[in-house]
């Protein structure tokens, strides 16, 4: 009899619907509305590389020591520098970073003695061409410019 009443009033169905309904609570929604809502990645996220510049002077922090290029397993960093006869130091001229082969392992970042090279929280680094993935010094200093879609 109890079984019958359960069936008659569609109790199981209502229970199921209640579960569905309960999950409508905005607090329980886990889907992110990308790209209008960007996911928050963690602080340590290893994403697009950046070559840091001094915040005031805009001069690069890189001392052209080449350690990042040596540390990289994929050998994809090329540091070009010239020796400055006045300061007896190397000045950074070019810096290329081939993102298409990078596996974001973070070894280059760990190797850098002055924290000039950093893997940032930017994750939108897709490109339509292979060449677009080879970043030069300018791109590395400015960071990626993903297409902005109107909301």
């Amino acid at each position: 009899m109890k079984q019958f009443l359960r069936r008659f009033f569609l109790i199981d169905l209502l229970e199921g619907l209640w579960v569905t309904f309960r999950n409508q609570d905005p607090k329980r929604i886990v889907t992110e509305q990308y790209p209008s809502q960007r996911p928050e990645v963690s602080e340590r996220y290893r994403g697009a590389p950046r070559l840091n510049v001094h915040p005031e002077t805009q001069e690069t922090l890189c001392i052209s020591c080449n350690l990042c290029a040596v540390a990289c397993p994929e050998n994809l960093i090329v540091v070009g520098s010239v020796r400055n006869p006045e300061t007896k130091r190397k000045d950074l001229v070019t810096f290329t970073y081939d993102l298409s082969r990078c596996m974001f392992c973070g070894l280059c970042e760990d190797a850098c003695p002055v924290d000039a090279l950093e893997l940032t929280q930017d994750f939108e680094i897709a490109s339509y061409t292979r060449e677009g993935l080879i970043w030069d010094r300018q791109a590395l200093e400015e960071g990626p410019r993903p297409t902005q879609y109107r909301q």
Binding site: V41, S42, E43, R44, Y45, R46, M103, C105, G106, L119
Partner: peptide, 14 residues
């Protein structure tokens, strides 16, 4: 998420 917070990557964590 714990992996990402800890080491910065989710799948290939290193």
């Amino acid at each position: 998420k714990i992996f990402e917070n800890y080491c910065g990557a989710r799948l290939t964590t290193h």
